[in-house]
Design a binder for these strands. Structure first.
Lengths: 251, 251
DNA sequence: CGACATTTTGAACCTGTTCAAAAACAGTGG
DNA sequence: CCACTGTTTTTGAACAGGTTCAAAATGTCG
């Protein structure tokens, strides 16, 4: 499952209209081992191609959808990183996750037919549009797709359990270590170095995700750097001692 | 949608074997407006009856499933309250939710075919066993059921977003207020008083859910009681001033 | 009734927050 | 290309909310 790194890194910003036809089919996509097509037969994959016909390009900062938007589609991220966030009645907000290539966003909208969070592009990005009704129709015919879709949602639930564990009990240093390790792990699964990270989000966004203030995130980075576990230069983070970082999580 | 309160409160502890045949069909169940059957036609409901043929009784403290258990079924809670919790590598655990009648547990297992959390009965309880493969087969034939099942999972994701918001940013008093209001709301939807709560969990379990220590939970209860917002006698909580409680969440 | 678990309350402590200011950086337009 | 403006990041010092440790009170169950 080695992916073509150059392809993933290619410049995906375009001046094209908001929506345009998909030029690359799921069956040809090099994210197919990570994305919706996982486990489908060649035959089934071709039927999936029929479904995912639209792409959408976003500029940095643009919203893929916002809380209250009518729900119609899921989105598979092709390039770029997103954040999802919820906002409480009194205006405080909480980043609920950072999503990258091959991951699906929009599942929150199925429950009420309205999106329940904002999804914002942290950099120029491109997504495949998966109309939900078409997906369910197809899933009705392809049990494997049905099953995979359920798995996807279940994994999202389990991922959130992990975040709750982090937010509920860990201290700042543990949260930051868990965050970095999680990022490297996911980058690695996409064929990138497991040591070099380029953060696409601000300290404040990291803090919001981790339940910390931005100053605490910054200080924790500095401390980990002082101790020689990482090297930090703005948004470039180099994991110097992954083992020590892991050790923070298993005292 | 008023439910028969006496029925919900009935003593459900039995000396029956672990599993036994369901005597009450989904189509007859007075939780049908809350549970899996929501929105199904009479005809479809009868097919659901075929699927949910087993019941399981649990004693207080017993596990419905544990992390690592092979996943085979979802469970619809008929009576009794449950908690779900995850445990980190170093043994700390986090309560991820409290579930009550009409709610579905076990969705965490779909992703990996193994349960990813523990589900424990906080009191004597009874659940309907919903074999997952049968459910998906039926969902394949009944689009409405398929849709409803997706909604169920999506709502769980959104619920967890709310918990993340709570854990990430709220202070102790807000967390406790949110917890109490959420409980009353759910009790009310089940035909109970929205003012009287009997907590089925310890202060420690509440604390674990809210990301607080048990002492903090206790102190916060005491403070809210001093201020006249609630009355606390051990596990009996009476909401004296619901508006003031809500006001805590919208400063 | 007695043993054990749960809850309450107090006081000292600590981690992360708040407020503030300087430094580094990014984007803009001349 | 550089200067300029606004944003992001770093760091310091005082502060506060929640934790920790401890002990008493209350409740529960055999």
């Amino acid at each position: 499952m080695t992916l073509d790194r150059r392809y993933l890194m290619r410049d995906c910003a375009t001046d094209d209209p908001l929506l345009r036809e998909a030029r690359i089919a799921c069956s040809q996509c090099n994210l197919r081992e990570l994305c919706l097509p996982v486990g489908l037969s060649t035959d089934e994959l071709e039927r999936l191609d029929q479904l995912v016909r639209l792409r959408r390009s976003l500029r940095k900062g643009e919203a893929l959808f916002r809380t209250g938007d009518p729900f119609s589609s899921l989105y598979a991220i092709r390039t770029g990183m997103f954040k999802t966030r919820v906002t409480s009645l009194d205006g405080r907000d909480q980043v609920t996750g950072f999503q990258m290539a091959g991951e699906i966003v929009g599942l929150d909208g199925i429950g009420t037919n309205e999106h329940a969070c904002d999804a914002l592009a942290l950099e120029d990005a491109e997504v495949c549009v998966i109309p939900y009704v078409n997906l369910t129709e197809l899933a009705q015919q392809i049990p494997g797709l049905q099953r995979h879709f359920h798995r996807l949602m279940s994994r999202e639930i389990v991922r959130e359990h992990g975040v709750m564990l982090l937010l509920g009990g860990m201290r700042a240093e543990e949260r930051v270590a868990a965050f970095l390790l999680n990022l490297t792990q996911r980058m690695q699964a996409r064929g990138f170095s497991s040591r070099e990270i380029v953060l696409r989000m601000t300290r404040e966004e990291i803090g919001s995700f981790l339940g910390l203030k931005l100053e605490t995130v910054s200080r924790t980075f500095s401390r980990l750097a002082d101790e020689g576990l990482i090297e930090v230069q703005q948004r470039h983070v180099r994991i110097v001692d992954p083992e020590a970082l892991r050790a923070i999580l298993q005292p």
